[in-house]
């Protein structure tokens, strides 16, 4: 509202719209949002991007370093020349006639084979697979895992917490004691046992992760519902004769949703991290599929020799997690500008 126009009434603006307008004033959060959107688009468009397949192996191209200018063949020639020159250097001589011939022959052989024209912006792994492609496809799986995991656990948490908080009494104590028991068990152990019993695949992984991580959500939702159900507008809704399902859906959930949205955003990174941890233990995504976690795990053994195999997936993951956290934090502040770090 401008100062010369005090008479005009502001348009109806919901708390959600207000929160959005506050969110867009937060530069870091908006920047993070763009990064996250970029990640999302790249992951979605992966099959159509001009990259190699993530499972395509070129065994000649093992462990090639990242290069913007040279293709695979040139890198191989360079590697051979480096080896020969290194040996010659140690013996204090220049390349022999024989060695030069060997190099030329190798070069000719490489030129004749079109597969050596492949380029690897981020290098290759131990089976000659393109790291760029693997990081992108790995990101796809990591992000989907994070999203589905967070959504599933929020859904379970919403249902359990909602029932527990709204109906209260015996149902509440029963459900909450159940949550307490699950809380007291080491959740990683549960996931590991689950994966060992039901087999190693992505669905089981998501299921196991969601199965142990809805507890915090349930408690959060229960607390909110408890305080909301005694609020006057819920009572007012009962006074006007609204039925219980109607109150839950129309009055209670919209008021819980803001916290749930924020919490989900903050939850996605923790799922990605958990998956990375499990992959690191060898319980996560299995080959030829990749996730950021499994890529890191593959690379750790040889990280001193081929550091790019570790750096790129790790960097991709760290940037994404960082941005997700900023995004979640930004959303939280936008929804609840008065509170200081409550979650």
């Amino acid at each position: 509202m401008s100062s010369d126009n005090l008479e005009a009434l502001p348009k109806g603006m919901s708390l959600f719209q207000k929160a959005l307008s506050r969110f867009f004033k937060n530069k870091m959060a908006v920047a993070s949002l763009f990064v996250v959107i970029f990640y999302g688009i790249v992951a979605l468009l992966a099959p159509w991007l001009p990259i190699h397949g993530f499972e395509e192996q070129v065994l000649d191209h093992q462990n090639l370093p990242p290069s913007l200018t040279k293709n695979g063949g040139e890198l191989l020639v360079e590697r051979l020349r480096f080896e020969l020159e290194d040996r010659a250097g140690r013996e204090n001589r220049s390349l022999t006639q024989q060695e030069n011939e060997q190099l030329e022959k190798f070069e000719a052989q490489i030129r004749s084979d079109p597969k050596h024209a492949r380029r690897y912006l981020l290098g290759t792994d131990y089976l000659g697979r393109d790291m760029l492609s693997r990081v992108i496809y790995g990101g796809q799986i990591s992000m989907v895992l994070g999203l589905i995991g967070a959504l599933t656990s929020i859904l379970i948490g919403l249902i359990v917490g909602g029932i527990s908080g709204y109906f209260g009494g015996r149902i509440d104590s029963f459900l909450m004691r159940f949550v307490d028991i699950l809380y007291s068990l080491p959740y990683m152990l549960l996931v590991i046992i689950f994966m060992a019993v039901f087999g190693k695949n992505i669905f089981n992984l998501v299921f196991a992760l969601a199965g142990v991580s809805w507890l915090t959500e349930a408690r959060l939702v229960r607390g909110m519902v408890l305080s909301l159900k005694n609020s006057e507008f819920i009572q007012a809704a009962r006074v006007i004769g609204a039925s219980t399902p109607r109150i839950l859906v129309r009055h209670l959930f919209p008021n819980v949703m803001n916290v749930v949205i924020v919490f989900t955003t903050l939850r996605i990174p923790s799922f990605i991290l958990m998956e990375a941890f499990l992959s690191f233990l060898g319980l996560g995504v299995s080959a030829p599929m990749a996730s950021w976690g499994s890529l890191v795990e593959d690379a750790v053994g040889s990280m001193t020799i081929y550091p790019w195999r570790l750096i790129f997936p790790a960097l991709a993951m760290v940037i994404f997690l960082f941005c997700m956290n900023f995004l979640g934090e930004g959303l939280r502040e936008a929804y609840d500008p008065h509170s200081e770090k409550i979650l």
Binding site: G12, S14, L15, F16, S231, E232, F233, Q235, A236, A237, V239, I240, R250, H251, P254, N255
Partner: peptide
């Protein structure tokens, strides 16, 4: 029907 004491909290903040 009923009117409550505190009008600040008796309307649903998320509904027009």
């Amino acid at each position: 029907s009923m009117i409550f004491q505190d009008p600040m909290t008796s309307l649903n903040p998320y509904m027009k």
